[in-house]
Amino acid sequence: MDEQEIRKSASLEQRHWWYAERRALVRRLVRPLVPGRALDVGCGGGGNTRVLQDLGWDVTGLEHSPAAAGIAAGRGLQVVRGDARLLPFADESMDLVMSTDMWEHIEDDGAVARETARVLRRGGRALVAVPSGMDLWSGHDVALGHVRRYERPELVALVESVGLEVVDVASWNILLRPVARARRRHNTSESEMEHVHPVVNAGLRVAVAAERVLPIQRLPGISLVLRAVKP
């Protein structure tokens, strides 16, 4: 992702429906855990890092981009610049490692998975969110610097290959998938991350939030969310 896209994403992060609902998702999944030491790998502007901090975690964000790291640090978050393929942290030093929409940017995602497992303590948790389904591949992915979108079996196999036990893997942003698929048929080169009218923004948040009470998590979505534990 180039610096212009990074700064655009940071400016949208507080209001845009997608970021807001992703923060709500992280909060819902992490709240039951006992706070400890956490690492947010590929933290971007730090929106999800802040969620962990607010839940009582001693959290560090790791970010490769100097622009994104600067934005997160400017928001008062603890940030380290580094490479997700070679994390600058000791073995078994983290209780939680979270990566939201980062693995798809790295060609060698196996190295990222191995490093996630390495720095987790026994009993530590991994939370990984990635874009789902190569049938949704479009100019949006190209503009954001994606290398791939994931299929469920592929993601599970990758995580299990590094010795983590998958607790569950669910789809997210399911109800809006047909809309995204139709739109992306005509999208050749641009990111979809843009300002949305407040009324539309609120409606889209309602659509995503409705998934919490509907038994549809096994259906295809725009994203996959995986939770794993280190045995």
Results as ranks from 00 to 15, higher is better:
Arg149Asp: 00
Gly110Ser: 13
Leu120Trp: 05
Ala117Ile: 03
Met134Glu: 15
Val142Lys: 10
Val179Met: 13
Arg50Ser: 13
Glu3Tyr: 07
Gly46Trp: 06
Ala90Lys: 14
Ser11Gln: 14
Ala209Leu: 06
Leu158Met: 08
Gln78Trp: 05
Glu154Met: 01
Arg227His: 01
Asp58Leu: 12
Arg185Gln: 12
Asp95Ile: 00
Ile216His: 08
Gly44Trp: 07
Ala210Pro: 08
Leu96Trp: 00
Ala10Thr: 08
Tyr19Asn: 07
Ser132Pro: 04
Ala24Asp: 10
Arg37Met: 06
Leu164Gly: 09
Ala202Val: 07
Gly47Val: 08
Arg37Asp: 03
Gly133Cys: 01
Gly47Ser: 09
Ala202Met: 10
Arg7Lys: 10
Ile174Trp: 01
Leu86Trp: 09
His16Cys: 08
Thr100Trp: 11
Pro88Ser: 13
Asp108Asn: 11
Arg7Glu: 14
Thr100Met: 14
Asp54Tyr: 03
Arg212Lys: 14
Asp95Ser: 02
Val142Ile: 13
Arg125Val: 13
Ser65His: 08
Arg148Ala: 00
Arg28Gly: 10
Val199Pro: 04
Ser138Arg: 03
Ser171Leu: 08
Gly139Met: 10
Asp109Lys: 05
Leu176Gln: 00
Leu158Glu: 11
Ala113Met: 08
Leu120Asn: 05
Val179Leu: 15
Asn201Leu: 11
Val128Tyr: 01
Arg184Ala: 01
Trp172Ile: 00
Val97Ala: 10
Ser9Ile: 13
Arg152Glu: 14
Leu175Cys: 04
Ala90Ile: 04
Glu151Ala: 15
Pro32Phe: 00
Asp40Glu: 13
Val162Gln: 05
Asn201Ala: 02
Gly163Cys: 06
Leu25Arg: 11
Gly82Gln: 11
Ser132Ile: 00
Pro131His: 11
Arg50Glu: 15
Val112Tyr: 06
His195Tyr: 10
Asn48Asp: 12
Ala69Val: 07
Ala73Ser: 15
Met193Trp: 15
Gly123Glu: 13
Gly221Phe: 06
Pro153Val: 06
Gln53Ile: 02
